[in-house]
Write a protein that binds this DNA or RNA. Structure first.
Length: 595
RNA sequence: GGCUCCGUGGCUCAACUGUAUAGAGCAUCUGACUACGGAUCAGAAGGUUACAGGUUAGAAUCCUGUCGGAGUCACCA
């Protein structure tokens, strides 16, 4: 039993003994004692006043006295206003550290063969343009979430649904055919996804010109948009694609292959990966069967024109189209199809979709539809909905060229990290490759931490001009602290054996606070899993790091003459480093040994 | 307009299963390097948590309304 539960039990018996009354667990609140007050844990006494019929001070004193008597770990207590602050004996925390010291995977649940299988879909790019800042947030959140779910004892399957077909890719293909002169990634020196993206922009440029030309001739805007030769050709191309036209399919394969090579590079850079990739070209027809099935079950209905609809008015929503009159599928149909394939492939217990919050409504509908179609996990599917990344001027707009490209951003940050490192002379004596490797990890650490520390649900602002700080509440700050601990540990080698560290030593408040923070880690991991929020981990590891830095500056470790104390502080540092490493792992951030 | 989400010092963010003096970082100002690693630390200044009511012993947090911002309400994906 952990200390909080023990106290809760004893508060209950205190109330029974002192006031002959029972109370529900919810009314017993135990929290960490705020800074500035003596004590480690605090019991809020207000809920007990009705029972005790005494003032808060008196009630607190009586319960405190009882607890001190019955709970060995409580060494002292005080009451301030309605708060009963309990001091936990140093020996208790020291023992905790000794326990933590023995567990290398501290904070991570042991994986079990029959653990729930969680599938996480993230990334899900279109193949007509390179990844941008918004995708970065998606990828980082999805990947981190997969590690957090695994750390909570789930079996995790990371998946990606690539939107590789549709009018958008036809636009790029057409523009390449018309204006490309056979340009390839090799001849142009462009990364494949950037090359294809270039022609997507090219299409748009010429298309716009055609529209304004038509409008000058007196055509309405709507009409011009529909009848511009380029869009007509693109639609013809899509039709040919759907009819398996050999030439179009070959072109499509070639250009998609360029894009995949480009994406692979970006994914590798970001450190994210997938266990199973689905392609929409292979799944988009799947949903029709399910819709037919739903039609037979009477879950859906067919209109006179032949289109198929779901009536969700009973659920407080509207009617939703599932198949067009011509029998072709829409977005929703495809998602149903993909769900079917996935369910055939894996015994999914829980499905998590990492998709932006502009699709909140879509997933609300999808959840209901899947449930109606009999998917066990339909109702409980999680739409991990995250906010948009905005620029100081507002939204990113591709038309205005304000989209922050993922590859550019990473490259810029790597350059900044490299420059900073050179300036500080930190990596002198390292080879060029080692320096690039390390500064790359620092740059990625900065980017990942910057994005993951924000509550996923909220929109966030990214200022590209100021780029990202390497000081303060940042990834590099945490990586730096880790690297410095490693340096201390190297110098202290050989490290003392960990048995019975710190026993009987007069430890300071800071040291005890650190142990308490370490002790919190498993609960933090659990919370992050329950709330689907990597930011919980990020904010925790920052607190821990900041606390350690203060400790580090207040005490000398290697120069400490009391050998037991020295050994204790080394062990404490070692465990802080361990937890930092484990926490950063959950965020997908690598530690560096030297920076 | 309907529905959903958001509004915290100059800026970026915490705290949102109610609870003590609303925490950090950046920027500004003042200090600390013969360094167990200064990508650090200590300190100052900066807030009636958009506004108005309500519930409560107690509200940034819950409820109602107002204002402001974002998203969505496609036979697009």
């Amino acid at each position: 039993m952990n200390i909080e539960n023990k106290i809760t039990e004893n508060v209950k018996s205190a109330l029974k003994q002192l006031y002959n009354a029972d109370i529900d667990d919810k009314s017993i609140q135990i929290q960490k004692t705020n800074k500035g007050f003596a004590g480690d844990l605090t019991v809020v006494v207000f809920p007990f006043l009705k029972i005790s019929k005494k003032n808060p001070e008196q009630t607190g004193q009586e319960i405190g006295a009882y607890l001190q008597e019955t709970v060995d770990e409580i060494s002292n207590f005080n009451v301030v206003k309605g708060f009963l602050n309990l001091e936990i004996a140093a020996s208790f925390w020291i023992e905790k550290l000794n326990e933590i010291d023995k567990i290398s995977g501290f904070g991570f649940a042991n994986p079990a063969g029959n653990a729930p299988l969680v599938m996480i879909e993230y990334s899900s790019p279109n193949t007509n343009k390179p990844l941008h800042l918004g995708h970065i947030r998606n990828n980082l959140l999805g990947f981190s979430l997969s590690r957090i779910m695994a750390a909570n004892g789930n079996r995790v399957v990371k998946t990606n649904i690539v939107n590789d077909r549709g009018i958008h890719i036809c636009k790029s293909m057409l523009a390449w055919k018309l204006f490309g002169n056979g340009e390839t990634p090799e001849t142009s020196g462009l990364k494949g996804d950037h090359l294809v993206g270039k022609y997507y922009v090219e299409f748009d440029k010429h298309y716009k010109a055609e529209i304004s030309a038509l409008m000058e001739k007196g055509m309405s805007e709507d009409e011009a948009k529909k009848s511009a030769p380029l869009i007509v050709q693109a639609q013809e191309m899509l039709l040919k694609w759907e009819n398996n036209d050999l030439e179009i399919r070959e072109l499509w394969k070639m250009m998609n292959a360029w894009v995949y090579a480009g994406f692979a590079e970006t994914y590798k850079k970001l450190g994210v990966d997938f266990d199973k990739i689905y392609y929409e070209s292979e799944t988009y027809l799947e949903g029709k069967g399910k819709v037919e099935e739903g039609l037979q079950k009477g879950v859906f209905y067919r209109r006179e024109d032949g289109s198929v609809w779901a009536d969700l008015t009973a659920d407080g929503l509207d009617e939703k189209l599932l198949l067009r009159a011509d029998g072709t599928s829409v977005y929703m149909t495809q998602d149903i199809g993909t769900a079917k394939l996935r369910f055939d492939d894996f015994p999914i217990d829980r499905m998590i979709y990492v998709v932006g919050n502009e699709q909140n409504y879509h997933f609300q509908v999808l959840s209901i539809l899947l449930d109606k179609l009999g998917f066990a996990w339909g109702k409980s599917l999680v739409h991990f909905s995250y906010g948009m990344v905005e620029l100081p001027e507002g939204k990113m707009k591709s038309r205005e060229g304000t989209v922050v490209d993922a590859d550019d951003l990473v490259a810029e940050m790597e350059q900044t990290a490299l420059d900073t490192s050179r300036e500080l002379g930190k990596l002198d004596g390292y080879t060029e490759n080692e320096i690039r490797d390390t500064t790359s990890k620092i740059a990625l650490g900065a980017l990942k931490y910057f994005i993951l520390k924000v509550d996923p649900r909220k929109n966030m602002t990214f200022n590209p001009k100021e780029s990202i700080d390497f000081n303060g509440n940042t990834g590099p700050f945490i990586q730096y602290t880790y690297a410095r601990i490693q340096s201390v540990l190297r110098k202290a080698a050989p490290l003392p054996c960990g048995e019975g560290l710190g026993e009987g030593l007069p430890l300071s408040e800071k040291e005890l606070t650190l142990i308490q923070l370490l002790n919190d880690f498993p609960a933090i991991v659990k919370q992050a899993g329950e709330e689907y929020s990597p930011s919980v981990i990020a904010n925790y590891v920052y607190d821990l790091t900041k606390e350690y830095n203060q400790f580090y500056h207040d005490f000398s470790i290697l120069k400490e003459e009391n050998e037991d104390l020295r050994a204790f502080r080394l062990a404490l540092s070692e465990n802080v480093a361990k937890v930092i490493k484990n926490a950063l792992y959950l965020l997908g951030i690598e530690v560096v040994e030297r920076m």
